[in-house]
């Protein structure tokens, strides 16, 4: 009789969780703590010496290191801002247009816009470098054809435009992601809701603003956080278009390229894994703080609707 009162051990939960926990621990959590450990040491005469938080103190306190770090963080923030201002609204707008039943060839557009997302960074970076090249590129010729040649600048080579240009290339590549997620969210809105709105006089644009947008807000939140994490981890595109020195004059230097140069070294500069790990930890912190703000500040307040 007593046996029945005792809650049953649910072994199957452990069994189902185990593989994922093991793999995740092995390839994510252990390396994360390994990086943290590495960042607390320094190399003196080929020996690893524990120095506490000195690497972080140098990174944030030393004039040169902190200048590089804040420059990279500032560029990262701008990179993210361009994505939030350009990529996500365009993605939402395209998704809204695609979901409208009046549009013909919608599956063709959907595929065409999504294709750059599956291309490699290297291909995208190289192709855009050629398109924008002042010597062989088609951009100056196309502007010339419409009489706007004077607008052409060697964008990737000018300090004031380079970062925005790289960000817009990235937007071009990844605009398919918000489009797909929003498109899926829009399709899941039941027709009954929209028809009820229509009876109450909500059609066209106002149906979008008043009914669809509130219903896809959770998806927009997810997209924002994905964009945030992706942008603050950015490295590949800058590396392929501007090189590891992130020229001109470090104007496209993001945390990823700074980490790369510090950790692995570059040309005459020898790598410093300890300082590199400190930068990696800072990147982790920035992303962690951003995600926490989203999770606790925004997601918990978001209203969900049940149909």
């Amino acid at each position: 009789m007593r046996n029945l009162d005792k809650p049953k051990r649910r072994w199957h939960i452990v069994v189902f969780l185990l593989p994922a926990v093991l793999v995740y621990t092995a390839i994510m959590i252990i390396p994360l703590f390994g990086t943290l450990q590495l960042s607390l040491f320094t190399t003196i005469d080929r020996e690893q010496v524990f120095i506490g938080f000195d690497n972080f103190r140098t990174l944030l306190g030393d004039e040169r290191w902190s200048q590089s770090f804040w420059n990279a963080l500032k560029n990262n923030a701008w990179f993210f801002l361009v994505h939030m201002i350009v990529q996500n609204p365009i993605g939402i707008a395209i998704a809204a247009m695609l979901s409208s039943s009046a549009l013909r060839f919608s599956s063709f557009y959907r595929t065409a816009i999504f294709i750059p997302t599956i291309l490699s960074f290297v291909i995208v970076g190289f192709a855009w470098k050629l398109i924008l090249s002042p010597i062989w590129g088609i951009a100056p010729g196309m502007l010339d054809a419409v009489g706007l040649r004077f607008l052409f600048e060697p964008w990737l080579g000018k300090e004031e435009y380079a970062l925005t240009t790289v960000a817009l290339i990235s937007v071009w590549q990844f605009v398919g992601i918000p489009m797909m997620l929003i498109y899926a969210a829009l399709l899941s809105i039941p027709d009954e809701v929209l028809e009820a709105g229509e009876i109450d006089g909500l059609t066209g644009m106002s149906a979008f603003w008043k009914i669809k947008l509130p219903l896809i807000l959770p998806s927009i939140g997810i997209i924002s956080i994905l964009t945030f994490v992706g942008n603050f981890n950015a490295f590949d595109l800058v590396y392929t278009t501007q090189g590891a020195l992130a020229g001109p004059n470090y104007s496209t230097d993001v945390l990823g390229t700074l980490l790369y140069r510090t950790f692995f070294g570059f040309q005459m500069q020898l790598g410093d894994p300890n300082m590199g790990s400190a930068i990696a930890m800072m990147m982790f912190l920035v992303i962690l703080i951003g995600v926490c703000i989203y999770l606790f500040g925004i997601q918990t307040r978001m209203r969900r609707y049940q149909f």
């Binding site: 040169r64 290191w65 080579g157 300090e159 020195l245 020229g247 001109p248 004059n249 470090y250 140069r261 570059f266 040309q267 005459m268 500069q269 410093d272």
Partner: peptide
């Protein structure tokens, strides 16, 4: 650190660009 070889890449390019 800072690495002089990297820095003279950057400054030389800056001087040519006039910045």
């Amino acid at each position: 650190t800072p690495n002089l070889a990297n820095e003279y890449w950057v400054t030389s390019a800056n001087v040519i660009r006039g910045t």
